[in-house]
Simulated scan of single mutants.
Amino acid sequence: MDDDNSDYLDEPDDCDCEDYDADILEGRARCFRCGRSWRMTTQQLSAETRWQASMFEASDADIA
């Protein structure tokens, strides 16, 4: 690959999986960088739910 992000895809074993998409209904996460998928822990799900709720409240306050 010739793009600037090619190093992300060349070495998936070196990925720290910090930047991921979370599906709180299914309890799964998927890393944007390497594509790994995993079941989230109860603590991860709780933190993600709180974060999503705060983002929703913030966007709702912006509308009002």
Rank of each mutant, 00 (worst) to 15 (best):
D10T: 01
E57Q: 12
M55L: 13
A58Q: 11
D21A: 14
R30D: 01
Y20Q: 00
E11C: 04
S6G: 00
D62C: 09
C31K: 02
W51F: 12
W38C: 14
D13L: 09
A64K: 09
F56L: 14
I63M: 15
A22V: 09
E57H: 14
D13K: 14
D23C: 12
D16G: 08
D60F: 13
S54R: 08
D62F: 05
R28V: 13
T42K: 11
R30I: 08
S37A: 14
W51C: 02
R33D: 12
D14S: 14
I24L: 12
T42R: 14
I63T: 14
R36K: 14
D19H: 10
L45I: 15
A47V: 07
D13M: 12
N5E: 01
A29K: 07
D14M: 10
E48G: 13
R36F: 11
Q52C: 00
W51M: 04
R30Y: 03
R28W: 08
M1F: 01
T49N: 01
N5M: 08
D16M: 10
L45T: 11
D19M: 05
D23M: 04
Q52W: 01
D2Y: 00
E48D: 09
M1L: 02
N5V: 03
D4I: 06
T49H: 00
C15F: 03
A64D: 09
D10L: 10
L25Q: 02
L25T: 06
D23S: 06
D2V: 01
C17G: 00
F32Q: 09
R36P: 01
A64H: 07
D10S: 08
D4M: 07
D23G: 07
C34Y: 00
D2E: 03
D21N: 03
D62G: 15
E18P: 00
I63Y: 10
I63D: 15
Q44M: 14
S59K: 13
A22C: 04
D7I: 05
S6E: 00
D16A: 12
L25K: 03
A58G: 10
Y20A: 13
S46N: 06
D14T: 07
L9E: 00
E11F: 06
Q52T: 00
S59P: 00
E57I: 13
D2K: 04
M1S: 04
M55N: 06
Q44D: 11
F56S: 10
E18W: 04
Q43D: 09
D21L: 09
C31A: 08
R36N: 14
A64Y: 11
C15S: 09
D62I: 05
E57W: 10
D7S: 06
S54N: 05
I63S: 14
C15K: 04
E18M: 05
P12V: 07
W38H: 10
N5R: 03
F32P: 02
L45M: 15
G27T: 02
I24A: 01
T41P: 11
A47H: 03
D19S: 06
E26S: 13
Y20K: 03
T41W: 05
A53F: 08
C34N: 03
G27F: 05
F56P: 02
A61I: 06
C31G: 08
A29R: 02
S59C: 07
D62A: 14
E57V: 15
I24S: 01
P12L: 08
D23T: 06
G27A: 04
A29G: 15
A29D: 02
S54K: 05
S46L: 13
A64G: 15
T41I: 10
D62Q: 08
D10N: 07
Y20L: 05
A53M: 13
S54F: 06
D62E: 10
E11Q: 03
